[in-house]
C-alpha cells in the first residue's frame, strides 16, 4: 500500500512549479503591456526574461525526469495524449516568450515595436494559460488515484499559478526598483485576494475529498494533514504560503516587504505542488497492506545481506 506517490518525484513537482511560475509571470507582464498599464520597461523586460528562463528550467527538469532522454522528441508523436499536448504547450510558450522578450532588449532591431510585441504577448498568454491548466487534467487521468480530481485541480492550480505569477512580477518590480509603480500596488491587492481565494479552494478540495471520495483519497488527505506530508502541508503551504504573506500586508508596501512577501508566496506554491503530487496515492490492491517493506527498505536489506556474504567469503578464504 502506497503511503505516498513515489513515481513522479521532486523533478516533476519542480517542473509543475517552474512551468506555472514562468507562464504566469509572463502572462501578467504581457497582460499589463496589452492594456498599456504603466510598468517600466526594465521591469517588463526583466520579468518576461525571468518567465522564459523559469519555464525553460521547468522544461529541463521535465527532461531530467525522463528515463531515456535521447528519445525526448518522441514525446510530440501522439497528439491524443495529454502529455503530448502539455509538451506542445510548453514548446510553443517558450518560443513565443523568447520572441516577446526580445522586443524589450535594444540589441534586437525590432525592439520597441509595440504592436508586434503585443500580438506575440497575446498569443503567449493563451499558451501560458494552457500550460498552467493541463497538469490538473493530466493528473486527473489517473483513475486509481482519486485524490487527483481533474475538474477540481484545474481551478486550484490555475489560482495557485496566478498567485505565483503575481508574486514573481512583484518580486521583479521590487528588485528592479519599479515597486512604486501604481500597477504594482494594484497587483499587490489582487495577490491578497488570490491568497484568500486559494485558502478557500484548498480547504474545499481537502474537505470534499475527506467526505465524499473513495478510500484512497481519504488516505491521501490523512497523509497531508497528519501523515508523512504534514510538515510540508502545515508549515510549507499554510504557514509560509498563506499566513506569513497575509501578516506581511500589515508591514507596509516597501520594496523589501514586497520582496519578502513574494518569496514566501513562492515557497508556499512550491510546497503546494510537491505535496499534492506526492499525496496522490493509488487504490490499494487486495493484500497490499501486507507489503511491509518499501523498495528502499528492500534495497537496504539486500545491501546488508550482500555485505554479510562478502564477510563470510572473506572469512572462509582466510583473509
Amino acid at each position: 500500500m502506497e503511503d505516498k506517490q513515489a513515481i513522479w518525484g521532486r523533478l516533476a513537482a519542480g517542473y509543475f512549479f517552474c512551468a506555472a511560475l514562468g507562464a504566469m509571470v509572463f502572462a501578467v507582464i504581457a497582460f499589463l503591456d496589452i492594456i498599456s498599464s504603466p510598468l517600466d520597461g526594465k521591469a517588463s523586460g526583466t520579468g518576461s526574461f525571468l518567465g522564459l528562463a523559469v519555464a525553460g528550467l521547468g522544461g529541463l527538469l521535465l527532461l531530467a525526469e525522463l528515463g531515456n532522454k535521447k528519445r525526448f522528441l518522441l514525446v510530440f508523436s501522439r497528439m491524443q495524449s495529454i502529455m503530448t499536448k502539455g509538451a506542445l504547450f510548453l514548446a510553443c510558450f517558450i518560443v513565443l516568450a523568447a520572441i516577446y522578450t526580445s522586443f524589450w532588449f535594444d540589441i534586437f532591431p525590432w525592439a520597441g515595436a509595440n504592436a508586434g510585441r503585443r500580438v506575440i504577448g497575446f498569443l503567449g498568454i493563451i499558451f501560458a494559460v494552457a500550460l498552467v491548466m493541463y497538469p490538473g487534467l493530466e493528473l486527473g487521468e489517473a483513475r486509481g488515484r482519486s485524490f487527483w480530481n481533474g475538474s477540481a485541480l484545474v481551478p486550484l492550480w490555475l489560482t495557485a499559478a496566478l498567485t505565483s505569477g503575481l508574486a514573481g512580477v512583484i518580486l521583479v518590480a521590487a528588485v528592479t526598483g519599479a515597486s512604486i509603480a501604481p500597477a504594482i500596488a494594484l497587483l499587490d491587492k489582487i495577490l491578497l485576494a488570490l491568497i484568500v481565494t486559494k485558502v478557500i479552494l484548498i480547504a474545499a478540495y481537502i474537505m470534499g475529498m475527506r467526505r465524499a471520495a473513495p478510500e484512497e483519497a481519504r488516505r491521501s488527505v490523512a497523509t497531508l494533514l497528519s501523515g508523512s506530508l504534514k510538515n510540508i502541508f502545515w508549515w510549507g503551504i499554510v504557514v509560509c504560503g498563506h499566513i506569513i504573506p497575509c501578516f506581511l500586508y500589515f508591514g507596509g508596501s516597501g520594496a523589501g516587504i514586497l520582496a519578502i512577501k513574494s518569496l514566501f508566496v513562492l515557497a508556499g506554491e512550491a510546497c503546494l505542488r510537491a505535496a499534492f503530487l506526492q499525496a496522490g496515492v493509488r487504490v490499494s490492491l487486495p493484500g497490499e497492506d501486507n507489503e511491509w517493506y518499501q523498495e528502499e527498505e528492500i534495497a537496504v536489506l539486500a545491501a546488508r545481506l550482500e555485505q554479510t556474504w562478502q564477510e563470510r567469503a572473506a572469512w572462509l578464504n582466510g583473509k
Binding site: 506517490q5 513515481i7 513522479w8 525526469e65 525522463l66 528515463g67 531515456n68 532522454k69 528519445r71 525526448f72 518522441l74 514525446v75 502529455m83 493530466e138 493528473l139 487521468e141 489517473a142 483513475r143 486509481g144 488515484r145 493509488r282 487504490v283
Partner: peptide
Amino acid sequence: RCIGCKFCMLVCP
C-alpha cells in the same frame, strides 16, 4: 519507443 516518462505507471490503477 518508450522514453521512460513513467506516466503509464502513474495512471495504471
